[in-house]
C-alpha cells in the first residue's frame, strides 16, 4: 500500500491529524511572532519606498498563498477525478475559502501599498488583473461546489473547474515578465537567486513559512470538520429513513 492510500482511511487520518495539529499550531504561532518582529524591528526601511515596504511582508506571502492554495486545489482535484481519493474532495473543499481569503488579502494589501507608491488604489495591469481573475475563480469554485443537491456532483464539477482554471496560475506567475507593467518583477523566486537584501529576505521568508503553516492548521481542522459532517449526514439520513 502506497503512502498515498495510507491516508485514505479517515480514522487513520484523524488520528494523525490530532497528533500533528498541536505541533503545527505551535510552530505557526512562533513563526508568526518572529516574522512580525523582524518585519517591524530588524528590517530596514527601503531606500526608495521608505517604511511602506513593510506591507511587503504580508502582501507577498498572501500572494504566494493565493497561488499555492489554488495549485493544491488543482492537484487535489486531479487526485479526486482520476484516483477517486476520498480525502481529495474534502481537501479541495476545505482549501477554497482559505485561498479566497488570501487572494482577497493580496489584492487589498497590494491596493494599500499601491496608493502611496503609484498614487492609485488600483491599476489595470496584467498582474493585478490576473489575480483578480483568480479571486473570481475561487468564488466560482465555492459556488459550484454548493450548487447541487448531491455533494458528490458538486465536488466533481468543482474539480473540473479547478483544473481548467489552473491555466491562470502560470499567467499570474509570468505576467510581470511578459508585460512591462507597473507591478515590480519577481525579486525572490528567480532562477538566478533572490535579488533582495537578506535583511528583508529573512522576514519575508519567515512570514511566508508562517502563512503556509497557518494554511495547514486551518486546512486540517476544516477536513476534520468535514469528516464529522459526513458522519452527521449518515445519521440524519438514518433519522429520516426511520421517520418514513
Amino acid at each position: 500500500m502506497s503512502v498515498f492510500h495510507r491516508f485514505a482511511n479517515p480514522n487513520r487520518f484523524l488520528k494523525l491529524t490530532n497528533q500533528v495539529l498541536p505541533w503545527v499550531s505551535g510552530l505557526t504561532v512562533i513563526s508568526l511572532a518572529v516574522g512580525l518582529y523582524m518585519s517591524f524591528f530588524t528590517s530596514p526601511p527601503d531606500y526608495q519606498q521608505g517604511e511602506s515596504v513593510r506591507i511587503m511582508y504580508i502582501h507577498v506571502p498572501s500572494a504566494w498563498m493565493a497561488m499555492f492554495v489554488y495549485t493544491s486545489i488543482a492537484i487535489a482535484s486531479v487526485c479526486s477525478l482520476i484516483w477517486r481519493h476520498p480525502l481529495a474532495d474534502l481537501a479541495a473543499k476545505a482549501s477554497a475559502p482559505i485561498g479566497a481569503g488570501f487572494t482577497f488579502l493580496a489584492l487589498a494589501t497590494g491596493s494599500l501599498w499601491g496608493k502611496p507608491m503609484w498614487g492609485a488604489w488600483w491599476v489595470w495591469d496584467a498582474r493585478l488583473t490576473s489575480v483578480l481573475i483568480l479571486f473570481f475563480l475561487y468564488l466560482g469554485h465555492m459556488a459550484l461546489m454548493h450548487a447541487f443537491e448531491e455533494q458528490e456532483r458538486g465536488n466533481k464539477a468543482a474539480a473540473v473547474l479547478a483544473i481548467v482554471g489552473f491555466v491562470n496560475i502560470p499567467i499570474i506567475k509570468f505576467s510581470v515578465d511578459w508585460w512591462n507593467t507597473l507591478h515590480q518583477p519577481a525579486s525572490v523566486m528567480r532562477a538566478d537567486g533572490p535579488s533582495i537584501d537578506p535583511s528583508m529576505l529573512w522576514p519575508l521568508m519567515i512570514m511566508g513559512v508562517a502563512f503556509k503553516l497557518f494554511y495547514i492548521v486551518v486546512l486540517l481542522i476544516r477536513i476534520k470538520s468535514e469528516l464529522i459532517e459526513a458522519k452527521l449526514r449518515k445519521y440524519r439520513r438514518a433519522v429520516v429513513d426511520k421517520a418514513h
Binding site: 506591507i55 504580508i58 482577497f104 487589498a108 501599498w113
Partner: peptide, 21 residues
C-alpha cells in the same frame, strides 16, 4: 514615516481575515 495609515490598515485587515478564517 507617514505611511502608518496604509501599513496599519494592511496589517489589521490581514489579522482580521486570518482570525476570521
Amino acid at each position: 514615516g507617514n505611511y502608518g495609515a496604509y501599513i496599519w490598515t494592511a496589517y489589521l485587515l490581514t489579522a482580521a481575515v486570518m482570525l476570521g478564517l
